[in-house]
Nucleic acid binder design. Structure first.
Lengths: 156, 156
DNA sequence: ACAATACTGTTTACTAAGGTAACAATATAT
DNA sequence: ATATATTGTTACCTTAGTAAACAGTATTGT
């Protein structure tokens, strides 16, 4: 009996053909590497992504950061608290809006971010080494295309 | 000053160029879709992956399933307990080894698995629709290549 | 001007997922 | 026989993330 929708990769088991399963397993590889090499009681992946955004776009409000990262505002509070307690970032009043808090990185925040980013980039290069240059670009490009097709509503 | 290692995608911010960040965001899209459309108090992503493996390879021991899925044996216990309580799978004694438990799916387990798998595949097709056929195959292929380069030690 | 509506940061409580360490029972190796 | 390894299990902990409510503030509609 003919398949109505032929699978993308014929030679694998059902679960190995699922996009979700492959994305999760691939992410776990990268995340474990991040934790082993970078996080040593420094910054969690989540806190690093928040600090990166603050460093790259100084002055964003908490809501803007949450939207951009696709996380809940409520989840951001503890992260900012932690970054602030460590002297890496600060909350600043927003002139026009007394509800909002603008986020800026401190000097120490910029420095730590630069350090960690360099290490993360080096480790991702190592992880991607089994793919040739063209494949690396393809993978990143396809992931970004997939994301932008589904994130229209939230992020920038 | 020239960059020692040119970035893969020149036109994006630092965080958007990171593999880990893109994998996580992409996975969250698929996972949220799974939860919205499939999980309705039926099976979590994790329980589904376990049931799928049991259905595809009947008789595996718990340790084998854990290794194959890249999760801890300890985490598997509750999932099997749940599948067993719902009459979807069973633990069976292994003839040669009195420590091990062989896992088999019940009739109900096979049926539910087939139902959910069909729904998951349909939803993944919809999610992948923004990519053309060649890109879909590329994405899956690259993810699997990336995984197999880093999972040598654990899974089959 | 006033009422309805929406947004911001926050707290609290919850679930899923996973990690670590220990344990008794059982297998395997020396 | 003794040491070592493996299996399933339990207990405890961390990270992520969700959901609902809240007071304070802004915006919109009339």
């Amino acid at each position: 009996m003919a398949k109505a929708h032929p699978a993308l990769l014929e030679d694998e088991s059902d679960i190995e053909r699922l996009l979700g399963y492959n994305l999760k397993r691939a992410y776990m590889i990268v995340r474990d590497d991040f934790r082993n090499q970078v996080e040593q009681s420094v910054l969690s992946p989540r806190a690093f992504s928040v600090l990166t955004l603050i460093v790259e776009s100084s002055g964003m409000t908490q809501s803007e950061v949450a939207r951009q990262l696709g996380i809940e505002r409520s989840g951001l509070v503890a992260i900012i608290d932690d970054l602030e307690a460590r002297g890496l970032a600060e909350r600043r009043a927003v002139p026009g809006d007394r509800r909002a808090q603008a986020l800026i990185a401190t000097e120490a925040g910029y420095e730590l971010h630069a350090q960690i980013l360099a290490r993360v980039q080096a480790h991702e290069r190592a992880l991607l080494a089994p793919l040739d240059r063209a494949e690396q670009v393809q993978l990143l490009t396809l992931l970004r295309k997939f994301r932008s097709a589904h994130e229209k509503d939230e992020a920038s």
